[in-house]
Design a protein around this nucleic acid. Structure first.
Length: 478
DNA sequence: ATTAGGG
DNA sequence: CCCTAAT
């Protein structure tokens, strides 16, 4: 539930903002801003995503250039942040300790948000190695290129005020995103409001004091305020910081930075975030049912979603996540295919036991009941899965018998993977006799011994167990 | 919507 | 695991 909600929240605010931005800004600008947003956001959610970003850059030259600009922008942001916003820095100290994601999530405070972002970016960059290179390259010579790029990219270069406005808006979006991640929708809204009010009331003064240039900018913005008050306000509050240093270049840089991610990316991101959120759930789940470490992973099946949308812990451990990530990369745009793919999840002994238990209780065929009662915590096991598993168990158990007897001498060398302990096998056998699997068992009655397909279950225990009074579904029960 | 059966 | 048919 919670997980589900998150993405929703995230999307909403962001979209709303974006739309508002759209109105004021040309489409091109919007797109750009979106892109940047995506870039900014992604790193927070997952480090792996970083790779993605870069890969993305590699894909086509233009993008690559954007990336450079992006990194450069970040660099600037960081510098500015560390320099002008030191006063704030103290509060944000925790961020550094926390992971980038956490930091961003936890730090929702208005102005701080911007700062956090920058710091986060810094971490992000540092983590990746790439950034260094980029920063070196970018900071010097690239500034010019950035300008060019930005101007060319942004359709509305007109006045500096305009461009700034665009930047500010996009920046807002970014902040919101981070907030939304927290799941604090209200906060986000409040944040915006606060900014607006603040700017109006002149509360921003402190910031302005620290940074003079910002004031100038602010004034400039004021002019344009008529058209886009919110934007200008925000700009004065947050973005001014970034603009501080570079009046001309700053605007450009900022634009780059604020570029919005494309819808596609947004979708992707939302997915990722969802996944990440699921991770937590997963932990819980694993605790609940001392289940194994699922070798498989995440993208999992579409089926469960359909059937039981409420529980969706898809992703597993980080490893698996990365795997899925890779897969996604491979398939690239064919995510649909990726999603479809259902990675098998190994059945743990515990699960098997539970299943057997459930069958013993409810009888064979009541898969939904068993699912509900015993596998409620595990979203991935659908009733059908249970049934299939049971089928397999029957098969294997019978096989074991034969094989065992025959191959016993060889020991179990061959059984490289055979987690089923004897006890379990025994139980299965018992159950098999009592709750013969629907179709497979009919031969039992009719053909006494001829059918090998039937597991020859009747062997040792013919009519032993009635422990479970319920044969409800007895179906073909004797 | 579940279940059985087959692939 | 997935899909389809039958209830």
């Amino acid at each position: 539930m919670r997980t589900e909600r998150k993405p929703h929240l995230i999307k909403k605010p962001a979209d709303a903002k974006r739309q508002s931005v759209d109105e004021s800004l040309g489409p091109g600008l919007k797109d750009e801003a979106t892109e940047v947003e995506h870039l900014l956001v992604e790193p927070k959610s997952e480090r792996v995503s970083v790779d993605r970003v870069f890969c993305f850059g590699k894909e086509n030259i233009e993008k690559h250039l954007k990336m450079e600009d992006f990194s450069c922008a970040f660099d600037y942001g960081w510098k500015i942040g560390s320099g002008g916003l030191d006063s704030i820095h103290g509060q944000g100290g925790d961020d550094l300790k926390l992971e980038v994601l956490d930091g961003l999530l936890d730090e929702v405070d208005d102005i701080q948000a911007a700062h956090d972002l920058s710091s986060a970016c810094e971490d992000f960059l540092l983590d990746i190695e790439f950034p260094e290179k980029f920063s070196e390259l970018d900071c010097g010579p690239h500034v010019g290129s950035n300008l060019r790029n930005s101007s060319s990219e942004s359709h509305s270069p007109g006045g500096s005020s305009n461009s700034v406005g665009g930047m500010s808006e996009s920046s807002i979006v970014t902040v919101q995103e981070s907030n939304s991640k927290n799941g604090v929708l209200g906060k986000m809204v409040n944040c915006d409001i606060h900014h607006t009010i603040r700017s109006e009331c002149g509360c921003q003064a402190p910031v302005m004091e620290t940074i003079r240039p910002s004031k100038e900018h602010a004034q400039d913005f004021v002019e344009s305020d008529d058209e886009k008050p919110l934007v200008s306000f925000i700009v004065s509050n947050k973005k001014v910081k970034s603009s501080i240093k570079v009046t001309k270049g700053g605007t450009l840089l900022r634009q780059k930075r604020l570029r919005k991610p494309t819808k596609r990316y947004i979708e992707e991101f939302s997915r990722n975030s969802t996944t990440s959120g699921k991770n937590k759930c997963l932990k819980v789940r694993s605790q609940e049912e001392f289940s194994q470490v699922p070798s498989e992973s995440q993208s999992r099946r579409g089926r469960p979603k359909k059937i039981m949308p409420k529980m969706e812990f898809e992703s597993d451990c980080e490893l698996s996540a990365s795997e899925s990530e890779d897969e996604c990369k491979r398939t690239k745009r064919f995510k649909t295919a990726c999603d479809r793919r259902k990675h098998q999840r190994m059945w743990t002994l515990a699960e098997v036991i539970k299943l057997v238990d459930g069958i013993a209780q409810y009888g064979v065929g009541r898969w939904t009941d068993i699912k509900k009662l015993l596998f409620a915590s595990s979203a991935y096991r659908t009733p059908v899965d249970l049934r299939d598993k049971w089928r397999n168990l029957l098969r294997s158990s019978s096989a074991h018998k034969h094989n065992r007897k025959e191959l016993q001498g060889e020991t179990n060398v061959k059984h490289y993977v055979r987690p089923l302990p004897k006890t379990v096998v025994c139980r299965i056998r018992e159950l098999a006799t009592i709750h013969p699997y629907p179709k497979a068992r009919s031969p039992n009655l009719s053909s006494i011994n001829s059918d090998p397909s039937s597991k020859q279950p009747t062997t040792t225990k013919a009519a032993p167990i009635n422990t479970h009074g319920r044969n409800l579904r007895g179906k073909k029960c004797n």
